[in-house]
Design a protein around this nucleic acid. Structure first.
Length: 818
DNA sequence: GGCAATATCG
């Protein structure tokens, strides 16, 4: 199934090539419909062309447009058709639907070889251009070229080409706009400054910008400000400033817009002070800072966390003759959210309402984003519902996508799918991003068939998948261990001829590494290099993981240097992955070395790094060194580690706490472990069942079985859900040295709570009870097992027959299988 | 033409 799909997929991939790369126009086959005589229109006079077209229309409406056109009677009329008739008919059809007029145009052309007037051609061209049907537009215009030999026959044709150029450029069809531009130059057609500016706009982030710029004869203010903006986006801020000062501007002089671009550029790099000085320059030049200028600076201040200054500037706006707009408030709300100050964000929204401004879709989206990031998915749903009830639904798909993303990230895929369907039902067509989010969510949960189904649906809607969509699918295949299929998909994408994003290679390389297939990972890495694609740090990090997974830490460590050879810098993940490998074998010395190296390279650790460091300490612990003083020292060390993290602004997560708790349990500092459980709770982090498993297991291991009992009891009182492990651990402990009655009681709870109790659980209990010669209890569990419909296996039989009393009992009652 | 919101790998 997958192979078939992949083959199918490759054909879809090739659709993403330029529509102009193929000039094929497939003509459908038509059947000629028969008509009754009475349904024929009567043609008496062709001299009255209005009458003629009206009769044709009458016939079309009576018989049906398509049927009429294919009928033999119409064929008779064609020879009498004049351009003016066709124009009038098309005009009429346009009011029905523009598609119908395009269809009529094409039918006449293809079936009756009717040569259209420039009017019809232009009309249809405009319809097609408006509907982005560039391929068909291309065909029509190409045909016009061929038929007429020269393009200059109609004065307005140049305008259509210019409009086509403008539109294709506005729609970011970069290759197509270049093609049109070239054609226009070949035909010596005039390219308007507006169209040129639009082309320039789309190349502003590349070096090609200058080629376009040089071609523009009548440059205007937009042309210059686009160049400045382009340079800013290329992070060539100094060049932008230089360009601002050149004589190119002649008498126009730089506009506020250009200064805004420069301010925005500096803000994005975090240099708010530079942005501020340009704000002053604007004033010095006698220009008036616009609302944009203010918003850009306010946004810059928010991004570096200077919310107070941002608020001040917003309140000073009226001094410069402008008022804050909804964008200003949205920026401030986002600023508060970035600082995690939700109440501040809501206050901003209140101010906004007081000012008589209404929250817009973006306001809602910012708030929604904040809720989702905090994990308050349900709060997000309420917000979305509120927004939709205010009639925003037709405005934008983005808030829905945010919600979809929130639901998918928390594994609530069913709700995501129902929202997705609701969106469609409400007439909100999901776009590429929405599809990709849901496809990714499905793939992450291994629901690959459903993901494929959506992928196909998306392609059917002519939404072309991009690198991220393919990434989601590759990820899904890799996570399901379907590496062969993932590789086939990747290969089919490679053979489409487009340069693939390194991320796609990374996903498959990582898939190989995760499955321990280091050879395959290296082979694919070789493909990357041979194709001339630049690997990213993630590529190497996966290789490091692959080597670590296959117990080749020495080779993994060498990759740190290889990364540098490729002109890249190892990331915190590179180091943390390596440290994790060392942690797994308790090699704390190597972890310390790497930690020092990280510090020297200026790479800040994450909470994962810290968790790995604690894990290393835990695994590296040697029991024989155990004494009270040392335990206290370790406890202090853990507390210090936690303080370090908090002062570095790295919030410890569940895993960090669990690792610390495990470390303290390992060194037998149980009171310390419970202290960390309390710290964890005080930081609003829920202890997971893993946390409780660690604690219960340790209480049992060190013989505090009664304490484990009361601990489990108190957790049950608090309605904390425990895993099966917590119960079986304690049951086993009771079988070994505690109270067999307690074991029975807990086992009943295990069954009562609906856990899937297997033969292994019975055998673990019976085994322990037999060793303590607790014959009656062994018999009890044996019978319980049979009553649950589980037959004894060889292991249990072997255990049972070791005890004479049990052997005779089982034989007497015929309980053992033959 | 310039400001605010969504999805990918380690």
């Amino acid at each position: 199934m997958i192979c078939r799909w992949i083959a199918f997929n490759s054909s879809k991939v090739s659709r993403s090539l330029s529509p102009f790369s193929s000039l094929l126009f497939t003509k459908s086959s038509f059947s000629v419909a028969k008509m009754d005589d009475e349904s024929l229109p009567t043609t008496n006079s062709t001299s009255d062309h209005r009458g003629f077209y009206k009769e044709i229309l009458f016939g079309m409406k009576k018989i049906g447009f398509r049927e009429f056109l294919h009928g033999y009677h119409f064929r008779g009329l064609v020879s009498e058709l004049r351009h003016v008739h066709v124009e009038e008919i098309m005009d009429e059809l346009m009011s029905e639907s523009s598609d119908l007029s395009v269809w009529f145009f094409k039918e006449l052309r293809d079936i009756y070889a009717f040569r259209h007037s420039s009017f019809s051609t232009l009309l249809v061209s405009h319809v097609l251009a408006g509907q982005r049907r560039f391929k068909e537009l291309q065909v029509i215009l190409e045909q016009l070229l061929q038929e007429e030999g020269t393009f200059r026959k109609w004065e307005s044709t140049g305008l259509v080409w210019d409009m086509l150029l403008f539109l294709s450029s506005r729609l970011r069809m970069v290759d197509d706009s270049l093609y049109i531009l070239k054609k226009m130059k070949d035909q010596n057609l005039n390219v308007s400054t507006q169209s040129y500016n639009s082309v320039l706009y789309h190349f502003r982030e590349t070096d090609k910008m200058w080629d376009v710029y040089k071609e523009i004869k009548d440059k205007n203010e937009h042309t210059y400000s686009t160049v400045v903006d382009g340079l800013c986006r290329q992070q060539k801020l100094e060049d932008a400033v230089l360009f601002l000062r050149t004589s190119e501007w002649k008498d126009i002089g730089p506009s506020v817009v250009s200064f805004n671009s420069i301010m925005s550029g500096y803000c994005k790099l975090g240099f708010v002070d530079m942005a501020k000085s340009f704000f002053c320059t604007v004033l010095k030049c006698g220009l008036v800072p616009s609302v944009y200028s203010h918003n850009i600076l306010i946004n810059g201040l928010c991004l570096v966390g200077s919310i107070a200054e941002a608020l001040e500037l917003a309140s000073d706006m009226n001094k410069h003759g402008v008022e804050p707009d909804s964008v200003t408030y949205n920026i401030l709300a986002k600023g508060f959210h970035l600082l995690g100050m939700i109440s501040g964000a809501w206050e901003v929204i209140r101010d906004m309402l007081d000012k008589g401004l209404s929250p817009d879709v973006i306001t809602y989206t910012i708030l929604l984003c904040g809720q989702c990031q905090l994990g308050n998915i349900d709060m997000g749903l309420v917000l979305l519902k509120d927004m939709l009830s205010r009639g925003f639904e037709l405005n934008s798909i983005i808030p829905c996508s945010v919600m979809l993303s929130g639901l998918c990230k928390t594994g609530r895929i069913d709700e995501a799918l129902s929202l997705f369907n609701q969106m469609k039902a409400d007439g909100l067509s999901p776009d590429l991003v929405a599809y990709s989010i849901v496809i990714h969510g499905l793939c992450k949960l291994g629901k690959f068939d459903m993901a494929l189904w959506l992928y196909d649906e998306m392609c059917d809607k002519r939404i072309l998948p991009n690198s991220r969509t393919h990434g989601a699918l590759l990820l899904g295949l890799c996570q399901k261990g379907m590496l062969l299929e993932a590789r086939s998909l990747l290969d089919s994408l490679i053979s489409s001829g487009e340069t693939l994003d390194i991320v796609l290679y990374n996903i498959v390389i990582d898939g190989y590494a995760k499955s321990g297939c280091i050879e395959e990972a290296l082979e694919l890495f070789k493909v990357v290099i041979e194709t001339g694609i630049t690997p990213s740090v993630a590529t190497f990090n996966s290789l490091i993981y692959g080597y670590c997974k296959t117990q080749n830490i020495a080779e993994a460590r060498k990759i740190l240097d290889v990364i540098k050879l490729y002109g890249l810098a190892p990331s915190v993940v590179s180091y943390t992955t390596l440290m994790d490998a060392y942690a797994n074998c308790g090699n704390t010395k190597s972890i310390d070395e790497l930690r020092r190296e990280m510090k020297a390279e200026g790479i800040p650790p994450t909470n994962v790094t810290y968790s790995v460091i604690f894990k290393g300490l835990c695994r590296g612990w040697k029991h024989e060194n155990c004494n009270h003083v040392l335990r206290e020292r370790i406890f202090e060390k853990c507390k210090q580690g936690l303080r370090d993290m908090e002062s570095e602004g790295i919030p410890p997560d569940q895993i960090t706490y669990n690792t610390i708790i495990q470390y303290l349990c390992r060194v037998k500092h149980l009171s310390g472990a419970f202290v960390f459980l309390e710290i964890m709770k005080s930081r609003n982090l829920d202890a997971s069942s893993a946390t409780y498993n660690i604690l219960i297991d340790s209480l049992c291991v060190y013989g505090y079985i009664r304490k484990a009992d009361s601990f489990i009891y108190s957790l049950q009182e608090q309605n904390v859900s425990l895993s099966k492990f917590a119960y079986t651990t304690l049951i086993k402990a009771h079988c070994v040295k505690g109270d067999p009655e307690m074991a029975v009681k807990l086992f009943h709870q295990l069954l009562h709570r609906g856990f899937n109790v297997s033969i292994r659980d019975y055998s673990a209990v019976i085994n322990r009870l037999c060793r303590r010669h607790l014959v009656n209890e062994s018999k009890f569990f044996f019978c319980l097992m049979l009553s649950q419909g589980i037959s004894p296996d060889l292991d249990i039989c072997e255990v049972m027959i070791k005890s004479d009393e049990l052997l005779s009992w089982t034989i007497k009652w015929g309980l053992l299988p033959d």
